[in-house]
Write a protein that binds this DNA or RNA. Structure first.
Lengths: 248, 248
DNA sequence: AACGATGGTTCAAATAGTGAACCGACAAGA
DNA sequence: TCTTGTCGGTTCACTATTTGAACCATCGTT
């Protein structure tokens, strides 16, 4: 791996659950020598991508990341625009809604609106969703160019649960359904007990840039509920697209 | 410079004004060879810190940055904690209030509460404030260790308006005033017609981590108003510091 | 068709990265 | 008190990664 890749891997070790990590721990987790880890951390710290707590000497993510993220968000305000719409959709359906953005061949969860109900689906921001195992991914594929889809179908499809669709033909059918109805449906394809309805969000050029999904405990969903959620999800996805392209 | 440093420099070339840049341009600006720049960009893209626009082939900051920034902000909630206090201060003074966080030798504006008045000062989130030209910066310097201040005073001070304090002695006096009274005062040091009162926000270790400022059209401020704003700003800054360190 | 850009690729040469061994400090246990 | 095992941090000989000139292919202009 490149030196830069190693440095970024260090950044990626920090999570919501573990936002501060010591040097030895960091080196162990990254599979790097302590000296190497420290040199990389120093390079990152010089640019404020990493900060060191003066007392505990532990490391944490730096303010430079917030700065860069702000520049990106100002130019590409996906979350800013989409989050309020996702919130509305969550209130309307009473279920958890999550937003994902396409990046490097998969969907990256960038925002979550949790259901108010006690029995709800929990999704973490930052989670990476495969295109074939989730409703979001299938909706995204259905909105993609055929060329992209067939290229994706040629690669082996990993199974995440006993219900994950791994057959190219079955997946193609799910995609066809999504293309026809505007929304996709996936039952326990990624997590046991979770039912999802997905809809793609299109950019100005008509290509999909991300997706949103309504995720419910499977016990609360039947065909009628799914159809309602689908219609609402499509409406929300269109509203986001319209706002992103300045058409509303 | 380390390879990692070079890669991060590439990220730092993206600004609010120029959020998408082509390969050759990027290499030129960073002083790198095209091949090197591309290799670094690919390493960054693998971790979603950089994205490439498929059509134009230009590069932009990636979604991974938003992800990391969100993790940081969740743990180090400067804006989340400080924004409501800034809002109160804005309502109390009737003027625009802006929050900045120290990063890489300058203050980065991270939040703004605009005055409700028609004639108000406008500040943009993301703006970088010099330490010597703004009330926020002077307040920050006044709260910093002497060693940091004298190092800063040794470097030449850029003038932004005809009123910018560029003499080290004059600046030292302004810093001394701020150290004594708790708040700083700057008239038209960064923008013509703008008067600012600044106060530093201290972290758990007593070192300043940022600052807030009340910015008014100069026509609305006299010594009495400034003193009132100063007292209010100091109170707000202390409240934020207390909440950040879990003491309130 | 010729030009001057662009993005992207190759490979020998050279520089930058690596990691075992080391240090001092601290904390827990014997 | 004296281990023993951490921790963060540093050094330096060895080596693998990075580098960049020269090279395409492509695009839009002249």
């Amino acid at each position: 791996m490149s030196t830069v890749g190693k440095a970024v891997s260090l950044l990626e070790l920090f999570t919501l659950d573990e936002p501060e990590i010591g040097l030895s721990d960091l080196a162990r987790k990254a599979g790097l020598d302590k000296a190497t880890a420290r040199r990389l951390l120093m390079a990152l710290a010089n640019h404020r991508l990493i900060e060191q707590e003066p007392q505990s000497r532990r490391y944490r993510l730096g303010a430079g990341l917030s700065r860069l993220a702000r520049i990106r968000d100002a130019h590409f305000p996906f979350v800013r625009v989409a989050a309020p719409v996702a919130r509305e959709l969550s209130l309307e359906t009473g279920e958890t809604v999550h937003l994902s953005e396409f990046s490097a061949g998969a969907l990256l969860t960038v925002h979550v609106e949790l259901s108010a109900k006690a029995n709800r689906v929990n999704v973490d921001v930052g989670q990476i969703l495969p295109l074939h195992g989730t409703a979001s991914g299938i909706a995204f594929l259905a909105a993609s160019r055929l060329q992209v889809v067939s290229a994706y179908l040629e690669k082996p499809l990993q199974a995440f649960t006993a219900h994950t669709v791994t057959g190219p033909d079955t997946l193609a059918k799910a995609i066809a359904f999504a293309a026809a109805s505007g929304y996709s449906r996936s039952s326990q394809g990624y997590e046991e007990g979770v039912h999802s309805i997905g809809a793609a969000i299109l950019g100005a050029d008509g290509q999909p840039i991300g997706a949103l999904a309504v995720a419910s405990p499977i016990s609360r969903v039947d065909d009628a509920v799914a159809a309602n959620q689908g219609a609402a999800a499509v409406k929300a996805a269109r509203l986001i697209a319209a706002r992103l392209t300045g058409e509303a």
